[in-house]
Write a protein that binds this DNA or RNA. Sequence first.
RNA 1: GGCCCCAUCGUCUAGCGGUUAGGACACAGGGUUCUCAUCCCUGUAACCGCGGUUCGAUUCCGCGUGGGGUCACCA
Length: 480
Amino acid sequence: MSNQIRTRMAPSPTGEMHVGSMATLLKNYAYAKKYSGQFILRIEDTDKEREVPGGVQAIQEVIRRYGLDWDEGPGKGGDYGPYIQSERLAIYQREVQQLLDNDKAYYCFCSKERLAAVKEQQLAAKVAPRYDGHCRHLTQDEAKTRVEAGESYVIRLKVPENQEIVFTDLLRGEIRFHSNLIDDQVLLKSDGYPTYHLAVVIDDHLMEITHIMRGEEWISSTPKHVLLYQAFGWEVPTFAHIPVFLNPDGKGKMSKRKGMVSAISFLERGYLPEAMLNFFMILGWAKSDQEEVMSLQEYIREFEPSDLSSNSVAFDLVKLNWLNGVYIRKLSLEELADRIKPFVPAAFPSQKLMAVLPLIQERLVTLADFADLTKFFYGTISYDATVLLKKATPELVIMQLQQTVSLLQAMNTWDTATIETAIRQLQEEKDWHKGQYFMMLRLAVTGEKATPPLFETMQVIGKDVVLERLQQALTLLQKL
RNA sequence: GGCCCCAUCGUCUAGCGGUUAGGACACAGGGUUCUCAUCCCUGUAACCGCGGUUCGAUUCCGCGUGGGGUCACCA
C-alpha cells in the first residue's frame, strides 16, 4: 500500500463540471490505472455559498456517463474517508491547531472593511495588493483573549520572509517563487471552514496522494501549498500542472461566455463519451506511433504525464467533430440504435429505425444530426417545384415522372435491387441524362438535394409514399 | 501592472545539435459515385525575432516580442 500510485480529482459542487476538469480527471484516472494504483474522487465543498443543490450527485453522474469511475470516494468508501470535505471539518481544525502551536499560522481579526481599505490604498500606490500583516505579531495570549471574547477571526499562514520556494513540476521542471511575494493566505475562514489551500494539502497528505495532476491555473498557488507541507513537516507530493483549454479560436481560457463548456452538455449535444475522451487524450499529448484514434486501454498503457505538452491548447471543435464521426461509424447498428434513442424525435416511426440507421450512419457528425438527416422518411415534405426543372424542360420532367410512376406501380416486389434495376433500365432505354433524372427523382421523393442513396431511400420510405410523392410532384408541375 | 508558465504548418503534435522538418484535423485539387457523406490519392502550409555557445542550431543559453495563467474569508 505504501509505494502505490494514488491520484485524485477534487471537484467542487459549484456548477456543471467543465470539460477541462473531465480531461484532467482522465489523466489522473489513466495514470493510476496504468500502475495499478488508486484513483480517488474527493468532493471539495468548502464554499457553502456557491454550492449548488445536487452538485455532488451531478459530479458522480457525469463521470460515469463518460465511462470512467473511481476507486475510492463518495458512494464507494475507502480507507481514507470521509471523501467529502464538509464531513472532515474536525480534521482541519485539529491540523490547523498544530500550525498555531508551532507558530506557523496566526489568528487574524481584521474586518473585511479594513482589508478592503488596505487593498484600495495598495492599488492606489501601485503596490501589489496583499495582506499587510496587521495581526501577524499578535501574541498567543492576546489572540486567545479576543477569540474568547467572541471576536470573529480567520487563521492565516505565517509565510516566512526572504525564502525561495522551489518545487518540481513534471512537465516543466523546477519552478521557483519568492516568499516575500506570497500573501499570508487565509487557511481557516471565519465560518470555521477551511479554504481550498488548507483542505487540499491536509487531504492529499492524509489520503496519501502521490501525484497531483491539476490545471495549470494552480501553479501560482502551489508555493503556498509547498509552504504548508513544510509547515506540517510532510513530504511534498509530485506535481504535474496540466495546460488549460483555450477557446476554439485559440484566444483566452475556454469560458462559458464563448459556448458550452460543461462536460455533460457535450453528451447532450450528441457527442459520444469515447470520442470526447479520445479528444482529451490527443489534446496536448501524442502516442508514440502518432496514431490519434485510440481506446482508453491503449491510452492507459501509453500515457505518461511527463510527455504532456506544456502549452495551452485550443479546443478545436472541428477536430472533435471529425473524431465523433469516426466513433459513430465504428458503432454496430444495435449500439447506434441504443445511443441515438434520446435524439430520435417523437414523431419518427420507430419501426423504421433499423432500416434508416445504415443510411445515415456515415453522415452523422453528432447523434443530434439524426432529426435533420431523417425528416423526409416520414411526415410530409415541401419544396419549390421549380427545382425539379434543373437541366430539363417541364415536358420532359412530367414525362419522366409519369413513366416512373407507371413503372413503380407495376412492381410486385419492393426491394432496393428491384427498384434500382428497373429505374436504371428505364433511364438507359430513354437515354435520359443520368444526373438530371436521378436528382429530379431525389428531389421529388425527399424534397432534399443531399440524401442517402436514392434507391435505398425509396425502399425505406415505402412504395405507397414514394408514389404519393411522385404524384405530388406532377401536380406541382402541372400548376406551374 | 507584479509574479509564474509557454512558444514547430490555421489547429493539435513528432523532433530531444547535422532531417528533403514527419503525422493528424482543416483547406485545395483529383478518383470512386445518382446527390451528400464515407473511402482512396495528391497538393498548399511551420521552426516568433535578435544575440550568443558550437564546425554546425528548430533543438542549448540570454534578451526581446507574443500568448496564457494568477494575484479572494472561490475553488
